[in-house]
Each structure stands twice: as C-alpha cells, then as structure tokens.
Design a protein around this nucleic acid. Structure first.
Lengths: 215, 215
DNA sequence: ACCTGAACACCGTTCAAGT
DNA sequence: ACCTGAACACCGTTCAAGT
C-alpha cells in the first residue's frame, strides 16, 4: 500500500523500462542511431543513470536481443516433432519480423542467457523423444538454426524494394543484372531481381525438415 | 618510364592500399576498432585524405567485404553440379576463415557489386546446365547460401573455447547448461557445450545438396 | 586532382559528488 | 541505492584552404 497513491509512484528508471525504450528507439531510427546519450534523453535522465541498470552499451544490445528472443511463443504442447520444429521456426521468424531493425542483434550475437535456452529445450525435447541420439539431435538443431539465421538475416537486411513491391526498383536491379554480361545470371535475372522471402523460408525449411525426417 | 626511378614513386594513397590496410587493422584489432582516424594514422596520412579514395566509412566496410569475396577461388571448370557447389561452399568458408573478424562484413551486408555476382554465376551456370529451371535454380542457390551464412556466422563469432580446445571453458559451459534445469538440454549438454564447426558445416551442406539432387 | 587541418556535432565511460 | 554532471579520450564528416 505504500508509495502507490496519487499519480504513479514516479516514472522511475528500471532495466525493463530502459530495454523497452531502447527497442522503440531501434524500431524508429535503426541500430546505428542507438547511443547511451540519446536513449537517456528519451528517458529524461542523465546518461550515466543508465549504468545503474545496464552494464554498458554492449550489455544493452544483448538485452534488446533477449527481449526479441523472449517473444518466441512456446510450441503447442501435444505436437509431434515436425509440427514442433515448424512452429518454433515460424515463431522465430515472426519475432524477428516484428522488429526487423533490431533482429540483427539476435542473428549476429552469441547469446548465452537462459532466454536463449528455452527454444533450444523446446526443439531438443521432441527430437530426443523421437529417438534421435543426443549428438544427432544437436546436429539437426544446428543445421536448422543456421538456415534460419541466414534467411532471416537476408530478409531483415533486404531493401524493401527487393520484396518486389516497387516496380521501379525491380527494373533497375534487373538492368544491373543483365549488364553484368554473365550468361547464367542474365538467364535467371527476373528471379534474382526479386525475393519472395516467405516462399524462400518455407522452401528451405521444408527441405531441411524432410532431410531430418528421412535421415 | 617517368616517375619510377630511384626509390618507389612514393607510398602514395590509393583505394587498394587503403582497403588492404583496413583489412589488416580488422584482422589485428577487430571490427569495433576500425575508425577513419586510426586507419589514417596507420597510413601516415590525414584522416580526410581517405575521402578522396573511399566514400566514407560505410563504403570502406563494403570495400573490405569485397576484398574477402574476391578471395573465393573459381570452381574447377569441368566439374559437375555437386562438385561445383561443394567447391564454392568450401571456398567461401576458407575465405571467411582467412579473416574471421572481417567475415561479418560479408555475412551481414547486402552486397550489390560485381564481385558478389561472380560466385552467383559460378553456381547458377551448372544448375541451369543440369536442367534446373531458372526459378528453381535461384531457390536452390538461396537455400544453400542462407545455410552458409548462418553456419559461418556462428563459426566466426564463436568464442575460441567453443571449438572444444580449452577444457576449462568447456567445463564451465557444461555446468551452465546442466544448471538450467531443462531436461533435454541437460541430456544433450555434452554435445551443446562444444561445436565441431567443420563437421556441422559438412553435415548441413550434405543434407542440402542431397535434397537438391533429389528434388 | 589530391591533400591538409580546423571545426562541428557527436560518442562511451570514469570519477567524484550529491541525495 | 540510485542519480548527476563534469571531464577524458575518442568518433565521422563538412568546409575552406592549400599544392
């Protein structure tokens, strides 16, 4: 009952509030725009106050990455191996696309925290239950994860025109590809000039899950 | 014959010399240490002189990435589809491992230059020759590339201890994994605590090439 | 055409001081 | 325990001046 009457107890600083505001800053202005000073300004606070809750800029970026990771929903409990892996892969993608400008933090950093271990457990459980020996289960997990990281990196870094929405951008890209004078590139130019990220994602994921089911 | 007598014509600045020195700087001190000023100091030149040859820091980083890409050897000319793709994949990996601290520049950036198009041509040619329709050839290329980017990112960002060389680091990691109290993670902990990057690379590559050959 | 140096508007972080 | 502000050692890049 104490400290909670009248208006809220004060918009006090906290690790949580700092991370939320930092994510908003990345969403709005991109990763390059993140600075301790600018973040402090947004929070109406002295830059050095942040250091009471966050262990420097690098730890701040790790923190943002963990917020993104935490947004991956757990897979449906009763599901089989393939459905579980597919659900987690789609959940991962959705979490990254929810904050495309922050996604490279997840895709680029080696995260050691517990938050990163939850999805690992969620994949490994069904793999072991399906009879995979632990070493092969880890192999499978890592192969799929590598693919996910690679495709999502392409998707979030891609210029919006690469998705094919902007016909002028596509035309320019087509032109560049043809001008290169490389025969195979020219022949495939219409397909190189655009990228249906979702289709690429589904294609690669299917191939990998098929291979794991077979192998 | 002019300007080449006595000692060399002067250790003059050039885009090439700048990129080589920048790569050396990344190799020695890491990406975070790269600054226009420090690079200029190494070259014995005013920072602003760099701008006569390179279009700012971002273009410099793109330039370094292109130097790395250019180191991928062309595949053996007479080879079949699978051998060609395998050779390029291994060449890509070798190029990144030659400069692990600079590799994220390649793995992270969308490169539009001609240098990036040469390997694409080298893959697409055999794919089309093998009868792949252009759209499926591009699909295949992108799936493999996504996997390569993901695995190599893991490999170059990994702490050296993750490779299993340092038994003390492995023990600490094992402990963390067991302490998490996640059953599947605990069961697979010995395999999660280390990573044989080469084996992971070969495993994923084989799966993908098999799938493409079959499909 | 290329190089220079001063200047501007920023950075992350340490440290001593406050409450 | 948390917040502050000055200070230090840096940044990338613009601009006017030199050769």
């Amino acid at each position: 009952m104490t400290g909670r009457r009248g208006r809220p107890p004060k918009d006090v600083l906290s690790r949580d509030r700092i991370l939320r505001e930092a994510l908003a800053l990345v969403d709005e202005d991109g990763l390059a725009a993140v600075s301790m000073r600018k973040l402090a300004r947004r929070l109406g606070v002295d830059p050095m106050s942040l250091y009471n809750h966050v262990d420097g800029k690098d730890a701040l970026l790790d923190g943002i990455a963990e917020v993104l990771l935490a947004a991956i929903p757990p897979p449906p409990p009763g599901a089989g191996l393939r459905e579980t892996m597919s659900a987690l892969a789609h959940g991962f993608r959705a979490a990254m696309l929810g904050h495309p400008r922050a996604a490279p933090l997840v895709l680029t950093r080696q995260l050691a925290s517990m938050t990163a271990l939850a999805p690992v457990e969620a994949v490994l459980g069904p793999l072991l239950a399906a009879g995979f020996p632990p070493d092969r289960a880890v192999h499978a997990l890592r192969a799929v994860l590598a693919f996910l990281i690679g495709t999502l990196m392409r998707e979030v870094e891609a210029a919006p025109t690469f998705s094919g929405t902007d016909p002028e951008g596509v035309r320019r890209r087509l032109e560049t590809l043809e001008e290169a004078g490389l025969p195979a590139v020219s022949a495939a130019a219409p397909f190189l000039a655009v990228c249906d990220h979702e289709a690429e994602f589904e294609f690669g994921l299917r191939i990998l899950l098929d291979a794991l089911a077979a192998g």
